[in-house]
């Protein structure tokens, strides 16, 4: 069986996998990082999105062997070691951008990449289009869009903290 060595959330792991083992299976089953979810089998929902070398990737459509030598970040690795949340995580809570929470890890990981790739800022429509690869059945996306806009301001230094959403 092939062996892969990869860094996940700052920790190096070596694991034996089958050639057909998906990255999400390695993360969930072998490394017990169950924050990354599987919502479909056709690469449509984005519940499985993680970062590989800083870019968002659907881990259900990536073979574990393809991640050999890579630096992977999952939802579990976003907060700082002292527990400080990533602004995107904070914004999701502040703006009620999650209900059942199942899409949330993938949504947050995709959103961070979207914001990072657009330092010039994003319009509401651009955020909506940027979420093309992520499905949420609970929220209707309204609050997800608001949360991403708020987090973008903080990530790009336009605001110092996630403002309390209007009541």
């Amino acid at each position: 069986m092939p062996q892969v060595t990869l860094t996940v959330n700052g920790q190096t792991h070596t694991a034996e996998v089958e050639g057909r083992t998906l990255l999400v299976e390695l993360l969930r089953e072998k490394l017990r990082l169950t924050g990354t979810h599987v919502g479909c089998d056709t690469s449509q929902c984005g519940a499985c999105v993680v970062h590989i070398n800083g870019e968002s990737v659907k881990s259900c459509t990536t073979l574990a062997v393809m991640a050999d030598g890579a630096n992977v970040t999952t939802i579990e690795g976003l907060a700082k070691p002292d527990g400080t949340l990533h602004p995107m995580q904070e914004a999701f809570r502040e703006y009620h951008a999650l209900q059942c929470g199942f899409c949330t890890p993938g949504m947050v990981m995709s959103a961070i990449d979207l914001v990072q790739k657009n330092p010039q800022g994003l319009t509401e429509q651009e955020i909506r289009e940027g979420l093309e690869g992520n499905l949420c059945r609970c929220t209707g996306y309204h609050n997800i869009v608001k949360a991403i806009a708020a987090a973008a301001d903080v990530m790009h230094g336009k605001r110092s903290e996630i403002a309390r959403a209007a009541e």
Partner: peptide, 10 residues
């Protein structure tokens, strides 16, 4: 409940 969900601890 959001604290666990946004950190992948659901």
């Amino acid at each position: 409940e959001d604290f666990r969900f946004i950190q992948g601890r659901g």
